[in-house]
C-alpha cells in the first residue's frame, strides 16, 4: 500500500531521515519506535506530504504522492500535539473538516466522538481545552472519514487511561477491518497489544523492520518491550542476524542518551 524508497531528509546539518526504505501493507499495525529525534515524526510527515523529502520516493497505492494530494483522502492523521485555530469551537472544527472533506466520504465514523462523549464539550473554544481533550479531538478527526490508512503520532501520550483504552480498542477494531495503522510511541507496552510489526529508527536510519513474531523469536523474549530492549542493547547481533541491517552500529546506552539529549536541543526548529 505504501512504498517508501530511499527517502532522505536533512534539517540543516541534522539528517532526520537517511535513505529509509520500507513497504507497508493493509492489515498491518506498525509501530515506529526509536529514541527522540530519531526521525519518526519526520517519516510520518513525509507520508502526509507535510515534509518534503530531499531525495527518494513515496508511492501510495502505486502512485507517487508528490503528484497529487488526493491520496490524503485515504489518510487519517492524529498529530503528536494537535494544533487548531484558537478561536474556533470544537463543533466548528468538526463542521469545517466535514465541509472540506465531505465530497470524498460517504459515511462518517463518529464512533470515537460518542465513545469519548465529546459532544458535551462541543461549544468550548479550542484554546480552552486541555492537552488530553485536544488529543481526543485529534483522534476523532483521524477516524472520522473512515480512511484506509491511520497515522497516529504518539496517540496515547496525554490521554487518561480510560480514553487511552477507548482509543486502543478503536485502533484494534480498524486494524481488524484490514486497515493500515502506523503509530509512533516510546511507551512500548501501550502499543504491544495492537502491533503487528515494528520499525526501529535511529539517527534517521531504519535499523530494522520486522514482525513482532519474528522479533520475539530472534531475541527469545516473550514480551515485546523486552525484545526491543534486547535489540537495542545487542543491536549488532540483531543486524548480524540479518534483520534489515545496513552495517550501522547503534551507540552504547551511554552514548545513546548523550546523542538523544543533543538531538533534543537541536531538533526544535
Amino acid at each position: 500500500m505504501i512504498e517508501i524508497k530511499n527517502i532522505t531528509k536533512q534539517f540543516g546539518k541534522l539528517k532526520a531521515l537517511d535513505t529509509v526504505s520500507a513497504n507497508f501493507t493493509e492489515g498491518q499495525a506498525i509501530s515506529l519506535i526509536g529514541p527522540n529525534g530519531s526521525g519518526k515524526t519526520t517519516l510520518i510527515k513525509c507520508l502526509l506530504g507535510m515534509v518534503i523529502p530531499d531525495a527518494g520516493t513515496i508511492h501510495f497505492k502505486g502512485s507517487d504522492v508528490t503528484t497529487s494530494c488526493d491520496y490524503r483522502r485515504d489518510m487519517g492523521y492524529m498529530p503528536q500535539i494537535g494544533r487548531y485555530p484558537d478561536n474556533m469551537r470544537i463543533s466548528q472544527i468538526f463542521d469545517m473538516m466535514i465541509d472540506l472533506r465531505k465530497n470524498y466520504t460517504t459515511q462518517l465514523d463518529e464512533e470515537l466522538i460518542n465513545a469519548f462523549d465529546l459532544r458535551k464539550q462541543f461549544d468550548k473554544p479550542m484554546r480552552t481545552l486541555s492537552g488530553g481533550t485536544i488529543q481526543k479531538v485529534s483522534a476523532c478527526l483521524a477516524f472520522l472519514f473512515d480512511p484506509s490508512v491511520l497515522i497516529l503520532d504518539e496517540p496515547t501520550a496525554s490521554l487518561d487511561p480510560v480514553a487511552s483504552e477507548v482509543l486502543k480498542n478503536k485502533v484494534l477494531k480498524e486494524k481488524n477491518k484490514g486497515k493500515l495503522i502506523l503509530m509512533t510511541s516510546h511507551i512500548l507496552s501501550d502499543l504491544e497489544e495492537m502491533t503487528t510489526d515494528i520499525v526501529y529508527l535511529q539517527d534517521g536510519k531504519l535499523q530494522f523492520f520486522k514482525s513482532v513474531e519474528a522479533l520475539k523469536a530472534a531475541t527469545n523474549e516473550q514480551r515485546l518491550a523486552k525484545a526491543i530492549a534486547s535489540v537495542m542493547s545487542k543491536g549488532i547481533q540483531v543486524q548480524m542476524n540479518g534483520m534489515n541491517g545496513n552495517g550501522h552500529t547503534p551507540p552504547s546506552p551511554k552514548e545513546f542518551s548523550r546523542t538523544v539529549n543533543r538531538r533534543e536541543m537541536t531538533i526544535k526548529i
Binding site: 502526509l48 507535510m50 491520496y71 490524503r72 494544533r83 485555530p85 484558537d86 473538516m97
Partner: peptide, 17 residues
Amino acid sequence: YNSYQFIELMLAQPIER
C-alpha cells in the same frame, strides 16, 4: 503566523498547498 495551526491542520488534508 496566527494561521499557522490552521495551515498545519489543512496540510494533512487532501488539499493542495
